[in-house]
Write a protein that binds this DNA or RNA. Structure first.
Lengths: 147, 147
DNA sequence: TTTATCGTTCAATATGTATTGAACAATAAT
DNA sequence: ATTATTGTTCAATACATATTGAACGATAAA
């Protein structure tokens, strides 16, 4: 494993951690992004020097998010994981969903604030708008990428 | 403090925590969003039932991010904090800066990968683009809000 | 001067959760 | 039938950091 690859993989670990996932989650994504062919759980655990338990759970999470996919070869009972062809639109969608969810939660909270001063209500509406508009523009990008 | 306000404040605590800040950071933001007039550190600590140490540090962070501002009254040596008139464009800017920073870090890592397969390089370029484009569109919204 | 108030800093601790090791079921190999 | 692989789950722990209490300096009040 070259230094420049390790460097990239570690960067992805830090970025995913910054984004609320675990460090290994990001390292795994970085590792598979560096590999054209799928890797087995054991291979990933060896290269990242982490337990296979961590690889198993984090690979599941990445798969659920649509960033990697499971593959297999005939006569081999190991699971192989590889990057999906375009994880980028999934990434836009993930942020979009998060933002939309927050906008929804704020809307719920706002509805309970009916008696409040209009200035306060308006602040909450603006906040809600922040998340909703952010979600929209990111969703637009994802759609453009897909078509 | 009404239930609906507390509910909103707690929601903001959870949202900020989800976004990588502390729970009190979000609660403080939520509290000041519910108040038209500035609150002193002691008032904020009392209403949120947290230590004044937490309020002090988190208020500083919110102030550095441009979401709240320090005010004062004549004949009173307490510090008062209130929401800035439009924290929303600051919020766009904060995400924009984060995204742009990540794009920059990925670019640095990519430059070290020169010998690699072109498929791999392209993946990294796409990833970089994801963060850069996200930063751009969010920055555009902030600019529209400001003018 | 003494006493009280206000805000900050920092070492100690509380807290949440990422990570792991071990146990396990399922399957394949011998 | 026995042994070895493979992947998952979960309780235990390692780890990062949010939060606090206490000490402090600065300033105002008494």
């Amino acid at each position: 494993m070259s230094d420049s690859r390790e460097n990239f993989i570690e960067l992805m670990g830090r970025i995913h951690q910054h984004d609320g996932q675990s460090r290994i989650h990001g390292r795994l994504f970085g590792l598979l992004l560096m590999e054209k062919k799928g890797l087995s759980l054991q291979q990933m655990a060896d290269r990242l020097q982490v337990s296979k338990a961590s690889v198993s759970t984090n690979a599941r999470h990445l798969k659920e998010k649509g960033l990697i996919r499971l593959t297999s070869s005939p006569g081999d009972r190991q699971d192989y994981y590889e990057l999906v062809s375009s994880p980028y639109d999934q990434m836009y969608d993930l942020i979009r969903k998060d933002m939309l969810d927050m906008a929804g939660q704020i809307a719920e909270a706002r509805e309970q604030l009916e008696g409040e001063d209009s200035v306060i209500i308006e602040r909450v509406e603006r906040l809600e708008e922040f998340y909703r508009i952010s979600a929209e523009v990111l969703g637009d990008i994802a759609n453009k990428l897909r078509k």
